[in-house]
Design a binder for these strands. Structure first.
Lengths: 336, 336
DNA sequence: ATGAAAGCGCTAACAC
DNA sequence: GTGTTAGCGCTTTCAT
């Protein structure tokens, strides 16, 4: 509607002065600023971000690419990213990129190429070298959450160590017949999360002198996934483990639901531990390892925004490990 | 990087011709188009949407305002919106607006006023008259999902009728001692969804000649919320209903978990019905009423994009009721 | 069917 | 401190 020229005319100054007064950049006398601000308020002036972007190259918005929206960890990240960005005056443009998707190429070649963002946050997406190069060529800072990407600043937990910690907790209680129920090893999430958690489990088991043969069951990374796996795994009492390390709280909850349905007592007959810090953990009194998604999200935004202010930081790509911590609840105990 | 001038030079034509060839608007000979397209591909030209927006007024992006990200219904809507919009070449900018939030004013006055979108989709947000006026003044189409807003085209289910249908199912099985467990009547979601579902419940109960005194328990609209309510409601066997209508599948699942923990058999001692179509419904064999979020999302996008093509449609604000349907599973049966 | 030129609304240099 | 001027990269009349 109204342009900055209208504001300038009304305030009796030049466009440039009006621009300086409103943006805060450059020298303007207090008196003039007041006039300009009043004039702008009077006619309800709102700057056109397009026009500003065209000349400054900044868009005041951040692109987020993420493979899931509805899974707890990711929606938690998303919510936190949105809040942090909004608080700093940034819009958040969302690209939902399922792992094995035909959209992926399109998002990179078409949507991201449009450069409608000042930076990109990649959540749980393992970018290929080509994709990183492509993104870097756009000259915009890039932050990853969820796993190491060469040349990209990243916030992530240590999946192997976390899985080892979970397993060690069960071992320390005296369990020896422990299973790992986690994501399928073929149909992986990015960053080989499934493999890393299995690796941590196997390492802990072997270090304690236990076999890892037949120690793993695959399932979908969801409550129903854990439920299905639980029905299959606990069906035969003779082959039932005394403890299970689930690769996520969702899976752990599904396992517990299945166990209860089969009449198995938690934790006297079966101990279960998960990873995440999901709100359901409380309800199921699930022992779990928290990975603080909101904290990770805030760190990512902080880094991105500071990289925007100090473009020198661009070379500083490094991996920040976020500590995870064990929260004990009564889903685990010593084997009887 | 490269601008349209580069493409034009390389193809040996004027900027205007290059623009026409690439955008598809206006007359260009096939031969010329080919040359231009080849030149663009050669130097990896991508049009600057900012510059284009500045002159066309179109941004090729849509703003979405939504109160929750992690609740199933909303994340399902979000995922579907994103897919539909992406498929049509639109970016999606997300504004997460918790119901009682201080951010709300800021989003309207600052973020939405920037007009960085061609249209707005409001999901589960009951816009005030002022907000609608404000949005309409921006001259952009607006579509709502979740409840009637005067002057705004809306996609919604009939909450009262849906709640009545759910209650009638329990009544038709022969239940007379039925409770409704739903959202708090003071701390409402937008569109008074909590009240509407309670209203539908009360209407069905009274129509069948049953009292509605003491027939309602409030809880959070989540699985843990339903769980808490269930522990409280089912604790005393003497006051236990034979059936419960839960205002959402999440609540219903929480109730079932609580009931099982208390040793109550579903459905022989207690029948439960919910609303949503949540993926957990299958696992808990929950009878539910589906409300098809993805369908609603697609309808909203379709309407918005057609309104963008035919601005005449602007006056056509109307309420489209999305049909809901009962899916019977074994969480309900006749009272014994 | 194509080219030349104007201008979308803003900010950044450079004068004063 | 403030005004003038020159574009940012594109689309769109208006000529031709």
């Amino acid at each position: 509607m109204s342009a900055i020229a209208d504001v300038a005319r009304l305030a009796g100054v030049a466009k440039a002065t009006a621009s300086r007064a409103l943006s805060g950049r450059g020298y303007v006398s207090d008196e003039t600023r007041q006039k300009v601000v009043a004039a702008a308020a009077l006619i309800g002036y709102v700057a056109s971000p397009n026009a500003a972007s065209l000349v400054t190259g900044r868009t005041q918005s951040v692109g987020v690419i993420i493979p899931f929206i509805s899974r707890w960890f990711f929606s938690e990240i998303l919510e936190s990213l949105e809040q942090s960005l909004l608080a700093q005056g940034y819009d958040m443009t969302l690209y939902n990129l399922p792992t094995h998707s035909v959209e992926r190429e399109r998002v990179f070649d078409f949507f991201l190429a449009r450069k409608r963002f000042d930076g990109v946050i990649s959540v749980g997406v393992e970018l290929s070298d080509d994709e990183v190069t492509q993104l870097h060529r756009l000259g915009r800072p890039l932050v990853g959450i969820g796993g190491e990407i060469p040349g990209v600043h990243t916030i992530a937990i240590d999946d192997v160590a976390t899985a080892r910690l979970a397993t060690e907790h069960l071992l320390s209680l005296g369990h020896t017949d422990i299973r790992h129920v986690g994501g399928d090893q073929i149909d992986q999430m990015d960053f080989a999360v499934h493999t890393k958690r299995l690796t941590g489990f196997n390492a802990a088991m072997r270090a304690a002198g236990h076999s890892t043969d037949d120690g793993f069951s695959a399932c979908a990374f969801t409550v129903p996934g854990g439920y299905e796996a639980g029905l299959a795994l606990f069906g035969d009492p003779r082959r039932r483990p005394t403890a299970v390390f689930a690769a996520s709280d969702e899976i752990a909850v599904g396992l517990i639901i299945a166990a209860r349905e089969l009449g198995i007592q938690i934790p006297t007959e079966l101990s279960v531990i998960g990873i995440d810090g999901h709100p359901y953990a409380e309800m199921f009194r699930l022992t779990t390892i928290e990975q603080h998604p909101r904290h990770q999200a805030r760190m990512a935004v902080d880094w991105l925004l500071s990289a925007l202010e100090q473009p020198s930081t661009v070379g500083t790509a490094q991996l920040t490990r976020v500590p995870t911590n064990l929260v004990m609840r009564s889903s685990t105990s010593a084997p009887r």
